[in-house]
Amino acid sequence: YHCKTPDCKGWCFFEDDVNEFTCPVCFHVNCLLCKAIHEQMNC
């Protein structure tokens, strides 16, 4: 999964039971359910 922050090169592999990941490059939290960044909110 590629981080949705513009111009960020961060990415990860994820498993089905994970709903979000913190990008190791820009540190934004990406929602894997809706494929967006909406920190401090539920999907």
Rank of each mutant, 00 (worst) to 15 (best):
D17M: 07
C26R: 02
F27L: 12
C12G: 06
A36W: 01
N30E: 00
N19C: 10
E15M: 08
G10D: 01
Q40G: 15
T22L: 09
G10P: 02
Q40M: 05
Q40I: 03
H2P: 14
F27I: 03
N30A: 00
C31Q: 04
D17G: 15
D17A: 12
Y1M: 13
H2V: 02
C3H: 00
F21I: 12
A36V: 06
D17T: 11
I37G: 07
H28F: 05
H28D: 02
E39N: 11
C26L: 01
T5I: 03
M41K: 15
M41C: 13
V25C: 09
N19D: 12
P24E: 06
E39C: 07
F13E: 15
L32W: 04
C43G: 06
C26I: 01
D7S: 09
W11N: 14
P6R: 09
H38D: 04
H28Q: 14
C8G: 02
L32D: 03
V29P: 03
C34P: 09
T5D: 05
D16K: 15
V29K: 10
K9T: 14
Y1F: 06
W11K: 13
K35C: 11
N42V: 10
H2Q: 15
E15V: 07
H38I: 01
E15P: 09
D7F: 07
H28L: 05
C8H: 01
N30P: 01
C3W: 01
E15T: 12
C3M: 00
E20I: 04
G10L: 00
C34I: 00
H28S: 12
M41F: 08
K9G: 12
H28P: 00
A36Y: 01
E15L: 04
G10W: 05
V18F: 07
K4C: 08
F27S: 10
D7I: 01
C34N: 03
M41Q: 15
C26V: 00
V29E: 05
T22H: 12
A36E: 14
K4S: 10
P6T: 08
C31W: 02
K4I: 08
D16T: 11
E39M: 09
A36C: 09
C23I: 00
F27C: 11
V18I: 15
K4D: 04
F14S: 09
E39Q: 12
C31S: 04
C23W: 02
F27K: 15
N19R: 13
N30K: 01
D17R: 11
C34W: 00
F21K: 06
K9W: 10
P24L: 02
C3E: 00
E15N: 06
T5S: 12
F13V: 07
V18E: 13
E39F: 08
K4A: 13
C3F: 00
N30V: 00
K4F: 13
E20P: 01
F27V: 03
W11C: 11
C3S: 01
P6Q: 11
F21Y: 11
Q40Y: 06
Q40H: 12
I37E: 08
D16N: 09
T22K: 10
D17H: 12
C43S: 06
M41T: 15
A36T: 13
I37F: 05
F27N: 14
C43T: 08
V25M: 06
T22A: 06
I37S: 08
M41L: 11
G10S: 03
L33K: 15
F27T: 11
H28T: 12
V29A: 05
F14Q: 06
I37T: 14
P6G: 04
I37P: 10
L32V: 09
E15D: 08
K35M: 12
D17P: 12
G10T: 04
C8M: 01
D16G: 11
M41Y: 09
C3A: 00
F21C: 08
Y1S: 05
W11H: 14
C31P: 01
C23V: 00
N19T: 14
T22W: 04
E15A: 11
T22G: 02
Q40V: 06
N42E: 14
C34A: 02
K4T: 09
E20H: 06
H38W: 00
Q40F: 03
D7V: 03
C31M: 02
C26Q: 02
P6K: 13
H28Y: 04
H38P: 03
F21D: 08
E20M: 10
H28I: 07
C23G: 00
D7P: 03
L33E: 11
E15S: 07
C26P: 00
N42W: 11
P24R: 05
K35L: 06
Y1T: 07
F14L: 15
N30C: 01
E39R: 10
Q40R: 12
C43D: 09
D7R: 10
A36L: 03
C31N: 03
L32M: 07
K9H: 07
V29S: 07
L33D: 09
H38A: 02
N42Q: 15
E20S: 08
D7Q: 08
M41P: 14
K9C: 09
C26S: 01
C43M: 04
N30M: 00
K4E: 05
M41N: 15
C12E: 01
P6H: 04
I37R: 09
I37H: 08
L33Q: 12
E20Q: 08
I37Q: 11
Q40W: 03
C26M: 00
K35I: 01
C3V: 00
N19F: 05
W11T: 15
H2G: 03
T5K: 12
V25A: 10
N42R: 12
G10Q: 04
C43P: 08
H28N: 08
F21P: 02
T5L: 13
C23T: 02
C8T: 00
M41G: 15
C34L: 03
E15C: 06
E39V: 09
C23A: 01
C26K: 01
K4Q: 11
K9L: 11
V25K: 10
C34H: 04
I37C: 08
G10H: 05
P24M: 00
L32H: 02
H2I: 07
Y1A: 09
E20D: 05
L33I: 09
C3K: 01
F27E: 08
C34T: 03
T5N: 07
L32K: 13
E39S: 11
V25E: 10
E39G: 13
L32G: 05
C3N: 02
D17E: 14
V29Q: 06
V29R: 10
L33W: 07
L33A: 12
F27Y: 09
F21R: 05
F27M: 09
A36G: 14
H38L: 00
K35D: 09
D7M: 08
D17I: 07
F21W: 14
P24A: 03
K35Q: 12
H2N: 15
V29M: 05
K35H: 12
C26D: 03
N42C: 12
P6A: 10
H28W: 03
N30S: 01
V29W: 06
E20G: 04
I37L: 08
C31L: 00
F13C: 10
C31H: 04
L32Y: 06
E15R: 11
C3D: 00
Y1L: 04
D16H: 12
N42F: 05
P24D: 05
F13K: 11
L32A: 07
P24V: 01
T22V: 07
K9M: 10
L32R: 13
N19A: 12
C34F: 02
E39H: 09
D16Y: 08
N19G: 08
T5V: 11
G10F: 05
C43Q: 05
F13T: 11
D17V: 13
G10N: 01
M41W: 12
P6Y: 04
C12Q: 07
V25L: 10
L33S: 11
E39A: 11
M41E: 15
M41S: 15
F27D: 12
P24S: 07
T22I: 07
Q40N: 13
D16M: 07
C43A: 05
H38E: 04
L32C: 07
A36N: 10
K35G: 14
N19K: 15
E20L: 09
P24N: 07
N30D: 01
E20T: 10
N30L: 00
T5Y: 09
D7L: 08
V25H: 11
D17S: 12
D16C: 08
C34Y: 01
H2T: 09
E39T: 13
C3P: 00
C23S: 00
C8R: 00
V25W: 05
N42S: 13
E20K: 08
D7K: 11
P24F: 00
V18L: 10
C8E: 01
D7N: 10
P6M: 07
H2F: 13
T5H: 09
C23P: 00
Y1I: 14
C31G: 02
C23Y: 02
